[in-house]
Design a protein around this nucleic acid. Structure first.
Lengths: 224, 224
DNA sequence: ACTTATATTGGCACTCAGTGCCATAATTGC
DNA sequence: GCAATTATGGCACTGAGTGCCAATATAAGT
């Protein structure tokens, strides 16, 4: 009934629109998708995101403008295809082993895990991070992507907790994400080859210091 | 040399392109600007942001498409004209009375001050907040606006501090902003007429709880 | 292998945001 | 009132994104 927009490529590779085991179609789609993505990232790195048109990317990838839009719903997605799996990494990590400690603790570990994933392929990670932070519209998109999975993460952490805690948890998740973003920005900007892990750790230290002086007590006297 | 894009209205009203004391021009500009803004917000509330075209807004405000774009560089700005002063409020507050306590303490007070400003005109504030949170592209823009002034706030708090603390501070500012965003979202979504101040206070409590269990010590053994 | 059904492709034309250009109309200073 | 600015709005353009449709490639059936 709902008749989804029928996107190709990624969707096909994962959920398989048609279940051909090792079909030629599927392989071609994956190839094309990778070619477009690679061409896009190359051009973005060379000329900048805004100065690159979709038509150029399509031409460089040897396909048509129209087809490109069938693989990637927007120009942004050419970049985010590689980048938006970060949320999945966090969610998977938390789903599999969240229950063994407090929320903030679990968050910290999940972020460090993500950092390790990025460090494992730091060349591409830093290239993409740079593109994103150099392009205002992509920065926005990145933030948006983050707050999208903040919701999911909150859901996961909420299991077995009192529902009343939802807001508190949400804030803590958002703070952790903010720490991650700062860490990535610092990492991408920094020359000294420190690991993402290092920056994330430092970021969480800042978060932990938050309450250090914040013990002025009477802040919660008038409750509402 | 740099030949700025010469925006009208807001820029004219503040820095005054021409210094006519109480000129008729200036008054007309302010009127037109307000009419456009009002028309836009009304239409956005009625039909939704994406379903409203700039031509419609221009028509509703009794002007032309082209002129609208001279007053507001983008469709987004029709909304953000009212909303982006939040950063200014925070910055001003911190500039005038930041030095008397710790950074996190000052942040908390500044955010509470902003909350009070919003509570003072909660009708319009909640209308705009709702438009923003209902429209993905505006949410992004809002986040972007926030991280823009995060930089300024960090600068302000950094005065008289060791430069090495920049990153730590930045994370804390980002966390405080994240708390604010969560608070505003909760406030706009909530029916029970609680004040913004209430949600902000609650948000900061969540932030303070961050370190609660986070004392597993040996996390900083391998410093890198 | 040949044919049919189906999915992909790419071309065309459209909408809408945003911008440069220019003639016209309004405002200001004299 | 007149001349110099300055705002205005119309026109045409670019670029992103979308619907439609004919041509083509792949999958499935015989």
């Amino acid at each position: 009934m709902t008749e989804e927009p029928k996107q190709i490529g990624k969707a096909a590779a994962r959920t398989s629109i048609q279940d051909s085991p090792g079909g030629k179609r599927e392989r071609n789609q994956k190839k094309l998708r990778d070619r477009i993505s690679a061409a896009g990232i190359r051009l973005f790195s060379e000329k900048g995101f805004d100065a690159t048109t979709v038509s150029e990317i399509a031409a460089a990838a040897g396909t048509s403008r129209r087809t490109l839009f069938r693989y990637f719903p927007s120009k942004d997605d050419v970049v985010f295809d590689w980048l938006d799996e970060q949320g999945d990494i966090i969610c998977e990590y938390l789903t599999s082993r969240a229950r063994d400690s407090s929320a903030t603790h679990a968050l910290r570990r999940a972020m460090l895990h993500l950092a390790d994933c990025l460090d494992a392929d730091s060349a591409r990670a830093s290239q993409l991070t740079r593109i994103v932070y150099d392009t205002p519209s992509l920065s926005r998109r990145y933030q948006a992507e983050n707050s999208r999975w903040e919701g999911e993460v909150t859901e996961i952490l909420l299991r077995g907790q009192a529902k009343k805690q939802a807001f508190l948890l949400r804030v803590q998740v958002a703070a952790a994400t903010a720490g991650l973003v700062c860490a990535m920005r610092a990492w991408a900007a920094d020359e000294s080859n420190l690991s993402v892990r290092h920056w994330v750790r430092k970021g969480f230290r800042a978060l932990n210091d938050f309450s250090e002086i914040e013990r002025d007590g009477r802040s919660m006297s008038k409750k509402k």
